[in-house]
Design a protein around this nucleic acid. Structure first.
Lengths: 354, 354
DNA sequence: GTCCAATAATGAAACAGTTCAAATACGATG
DNA sequence: CATCGTATTTGAACTGTTTCATTATTGGAC
């Protein structure tokens, strides 16, 4: 059992050529006579040889692997982004090394270690924000890095316009007559420094400002990015005497929590409460939840594509960092309607008219 | 920019020792005088050195990476399993290389190539069934392999008792009075040979047999494993004149499709139709879908744990393959009730009595 | 002050490839 | 037939580690 794998030496011996020749056959370098090439290929076939990629990496300084650093990779948003990433990485013939981060220390340690260990040819960082020291480390190591759903001026970054997305969402709510709109933000996880929820808050703020709605700090809560977070925050908002008639959540998962909270309070959506989320995960479609759709898979694809471009072009000097902005789009589904107060008001008005 | 990374040679020179000594400091091998160790550590610190893992892999024949082969890794079931896998792999200080397979050829090519390329120390194969040639390849390469949600006599395998899970589910439906139960199986994807849906079908069959219910081939359909598949199959089942009063789907995603089909036909669940799925993904909880819960995360953890055990013990001869069986558990939620026909029957009976 | 056995430290070989300067083969030309 | 230039091929050097047979150092016993 476990007989030693054949090496390039064995192939060379078997084909009666020098190792260098086998190497050029393997790498399809020119300058090998067809007849020789055939002999070598036959030997490779006979020995069932395939090159040891580790050894190859030694000299070629290419590992054929791309590292992807991502927080909580099983959450639907990240999962979708990764789907796109995987497609591109595989298409480029690279392997996909997943670095899941759950804490700030872990994230930092990846940022510090990975460039030096040389186990990956490039790094795709999703929704995480490397500090300047980390970026210096990437540069020193000559390691291509692309940011997705995060921005840093010194790195190629891919972001969606969170401000605009939130603005559209809230504007839609306002156009439906809502004046008291709750906002559930996501926490800045660990200490990752970067929080797309903050931009979404800004969008909300802008839409409200334009409509002349006063900012009410009490209607803004910060919660975990998941269902539980959304539910708890929603309960808090909805049990207030002057509760909001609509809630905008920084993520779909939180919005689902809002729906659950409403259900548990026997409130009907959208009759008693309008809800809108952010992301556009599959679940939002199933639950007919209105949301701001991000092009998740595309973000993954494009980010990976840009990274691979950098890896392949890294010989001839790195290209300057690029900032790519994508537009989210509002999807109005079942969970939005005119607020109850306004309905009453309207009917009362109509009543008066008669 | 991009100054060359320091090597062990540089450290040795800086600390005025031989490379061998630095190596033993790095690997915490005994036989290095504390004073020397200090000098070396100081040099490592001064140069900000960390060993090149690729080079290290050359001689140590350990890459520090574990490969995970999985189909459609973003589906909730796999995603949950992977969550467990990731935890264990990271805990063991290994890296997680993801091989997502979407076609049979791709799967096969991974099975053939990976053992020879030596880029991973072990392979975790999820819901995929390697053929004998592949297994021979693993053995020749001395590559530890563990199967999760699949079984092969020559490999350590981790399976849930699909027959039993399905049996419980269908028995529950029968106990609620259902006699016409539709079954939506999942297709055997690509040509992966292994289909847990078949065992679920057997469980259904057994429960029906015990209850003296005749097997009706028309009530058994095969569909894609996803929502669309479930929806289409359900539509087909529900538009029959003698439609079933309950549907058991081989996956939760398909069961969600069933719910959607029912909704589009204006049928109420569970009043007009009982539905039960399989897997126990988060979505089933959100939709209050009854299901057969698999310990997904645990399966990932245990599978990865077994694999790491094998990797670490692979020096002293491989342990014999092990078969681990886990029990799923039925979760009854909102989507099960007594069938309408029986309600009528019951009320008619009661009527007569009066 | 020797001698001996540990204990430390050395440095070359090995790992499995790529690369490149040098050697060789070959066909055409003068 | 010698010469030249091109097309192949060779084999040693190199990548950055680990390992291991040697060699050097140390400290204690005599």
């Amino acid at each position: 059992m476990q007989r030693k794998a054949p090496t390039i030496q064995d192939v060379a011996r078997h084909a009666q050529v020098a190792v260098g020749t086998v190497s050029r056959v393997l790498n399809e370098s020119p300058g090998v006579k067809p007849a020789t090439r055939q002999r070598v290929l036959a030997a490779i076939d006979a020995l069932d040889y395939s090159p040891n990629l580790i050894a190859r990496s030694m000299t070629s300084r290419r590992t054929g692997s791309v590292g992807v650093i991502v927080p909580y990779f099983t959450r639907p948003f990240f999962s979708e982004v990764l789907r796109g990433v995987e497609v591109m990485i595989t298409r480029a013939g690279q392997e996909f090394v997943l670095y899941n981060v759950q804490s700030n220390e872990q994230c930092d340690s990846y940022f510090r270690q990975l460039p030096k260990q040389r186990k990956v040819d490039g790094l795709l960082i999703i929704s995480l924000y490397p500090d300047d020291a980390a970026i210096e480390g990437f540069r020193n190591a000559g390691l291509p890095v692309v940011l997705v759903d995060a921005y840093h001026p010194r790195l190629t970054s891919l972001v969606v316009n969170n401000v605009e997305g939130a603005y559209q969402a809230v504007k839609c709510l306002i156009e439906h007559g809502h004046r008291r709109i709750g906002f559930i933000n996501g926490i800045t996880e660990g200490d990752f420094h970067f929080n797309p929820g903050n931009d979404r808050f800004i969008g909300l703020h802008r839409a409200q400002g334009e409509a002349g709605i006063l900012y009410e700090p009490d209607l803004v809560l910060t919660a975990e990015w998941d269902r539980q977070g959304g539910r708890q925050a929603a309960l808090q908002l909805l049990m207030r005497p002057d509760r909001p008639t609509a809630i905008f959540a920084a993520s779909d998962l939180q919005a689902v929590g809002v729906l659950e909270a409403a259900r548990s309070l026997k409130m009907s959506v959208p009759d008693d409460l309008s809800v809108i989320g952010f992301d556009g995960i599959e679940l939002s479609e199933i639950l007919e939840l209105s949301t701001v759709q991000q092009p998740m898979k595309f973000m993954g694809e494009l980010g990976a594509h840009k990274l691979i471009e950098q890896i392949e072009g890294s010989a001839n000097g790195g290209s300057p960092p690029e900032l790519i902005r994508l537009q989210p789009s509002l999807i109005v589904r079942r969970t939005i309607s005119t607020p109850p107060s306004l309905c009453e008001a309207t009917s009362r008005q109509e009543y008066k008219k008669e």
